[in-house]
Amino acid sequence: MNLSPAELWIGGILTLMIFSFLYRDNPFYKFAEHLFVGVSAAYWMVQGVWGTLMPNLVAKVAPGMVQSFMPEAAGKNPEWHYLIAALFGVLLLTRLVPSIGWLSRWSLAFVVGYSAGTNFIRYLQSDFIAQIRSTMIPLVVQGQGGLDLGASFSHLVLIVGVFCGLVYFFFSKEHHGALGRVSRIGVWTLMVTFGASFGYTVMARISLLLGRLQALIIWLRLVSGGS
């Protein structure tokens, strides 16, 4: 990505403003932080308006109104049923007016109903049934020269780990005796999982820092007159 000198300069200065927080909170950091909030909120709104609202609502409900700058709307008939979506959208905005804010529940109810209806099926299929199916694997794995010990052990770890992890999440009975021992294995499995997640999180954060340093180096080269 090639950035203009102006983009590099502004970006470099804002980067240093944010990094100044490492020393302590200060007005430069606060300036950058507040700017970030304002710019990102507007960015999302603009993208939402031009990316979705105009082509998927306005151009469908009132094609004649926007056809001068949205050619795909030319010659189309209005699709009035999209006014339902517009109504729900406007009702959502009533949250900004406390006296009629309760009307926003209607839109919220649509969003909740939609999410519940789609999640019910998709989580059941992809995250429950498919996951159980993927865990139904042979405990004894045959290799080229007979029993494949390594693969068999790995499969055992997976099956036992999933089972014991689920037992640990089973809160309807106290974890004592055999149940307690099984759930303890579940805890160990989860600890390995969290350790892996920790390692990957460190990796991720370092990568982001490296990316920023690379950008700073490009800017500093520009400042020092290099290319």
Partner: peptide, 12 residues
């Protein structure tokens, strides 16, 4: 949902 590309050119 996708009636145009990002530049507003009709996908058709």
């Amino acid at each position: 949902m996708f009636t145009t590309d990002a530049a507003g050119v009709p996908v058709d």
